[in-house]
Computed example of a mutant assay.
Amino acid sequence: MKPTTEQFNRAMTEAAALAGSPFPSNLYAMATRDEVYAKFGITAEAAQLFETELGTLLLYVHGIQNGWDLIPDGKRAREILADIERNTLGGLISALKGRVGIDEHLASRFASALQARNRLNHGFYERHNFKIDTDEGRDEILANLEELHTELFNAWRVASTMTVLALQVLEAHQKGVTD
Results as ranks from 00 to 15, higher is better:
Ala38Phe: 09
Ala38Val: 07
Leu96Ala: 04
Ala172Asp: 08
Gln48Met: 08
Asp103Gln: 10
Arg109Trp: 03
His122Trp: 03
Glu126Ser: 13
Arg127Cys: 10
Gln174Leu: 14
Pro72Ala: 09
Ser108Phe: 05
Leu27Glu: 04
Asn118Val: 06
Ser160Lys: 09
Ala111Tyr: 00
Ala77Thr: 08
Gln65Glu: 13
Val158Lys: 00
Tyr37Ala: 02
Glu51Phe: 02
Phe153Trp: 11
Asn121Pro: 00
Ala77Gln: 13
Thr56Met: 06
Gly123Asp: 07
Gln48Ile: 06
Glu140Thr: 09
Phe124Asn: 10
Gln48Glu: 11
Asp73Phe: 06
Ala11Glu: 06
Phe130Asn: 11
Met1Phe: 04
Gly41Ile: 05
Leu96Pro: 00
Val158Ile: 11
Arg117Tyr: 05
Arg76Lys: 15
Leu167Glu: 15
Tyr125His: 14
Trp156His: 13
Lys75Phe: 05
Lys175Val: 01
Glu171Thr: 04
Ala159His: 02
Arg117Glu: 02
Gly20Arg: 02
Gly137Pro: 08
Trp68Ser: 12
Asn129Ser: 15
Gly90Ile: 04
Arg109Asp: 04
Ala31Ser: 12
Phe110Leu: 12
Phe40Ala: 13
Gly123Leu: 03
Leu96Gln: 01
Gln174Met: 09
Thr5Lys: 09
Leu27Arg: 06
Thr32Ala: 00
His122Phe: 05
Leu167Trp: 07
Phe50Met: 03
Gln7Glu: 12
Ile80Ala: 07
Thr56Gln: 07
Ser160Cys: 07
Ile80Ser: 09
Pro24Asn: 11
Asp69Ala: 08
Leu145Glu: 08
Ser112Phe: 06
Phe50Gln: 02
Tyr125Cys: 04
Val158Ser: 00
Glu35Asn: 04
Ala38Glu: 06
Glu51Asp: 12
Glu146Arg: 10
Arg119Ala: 13
Ala107His: 07
Lys75Ala: 15
Thr161Trp: 07
Asp135Ile: 08
Asn118Leu: 06
Thr52Trp: 02
Tyr37Val: 11
Met1Pro: 09
Trp156Val: 07
Glu104Asp: 14
Glu104Trp: 03
Thr178Ala: 14
Pro3Asn: 04
Trp68Cys: 10
Ser94Pro: 11
Ala17Asn: 11
Val158Gln: 03
Thr13Ala: 15
Gly101Glu: 15
Gln168Ser: 13
Gly176Arg: 12
Glu104His: 06
Arg78Ala: 14
Gly176Asp: 11
Ala107Pro: 05
Ala47His: 04
Ser25Gln: 12
Pro72Gly: 08
Val36Ile: 10
Arg10Asn: 07
Ala29His: 12
Leu89Cys: 03
Ala47Thr: 02
Leu167His: 14
Arg127Lys: 13
Asn144Cys: 10
Arg99Phe: 05
Ala116Ser: 10
Thr5Asn: 12
Asn118Ser: 03
Thr56Trp: 01
Gly74Tyr: 03
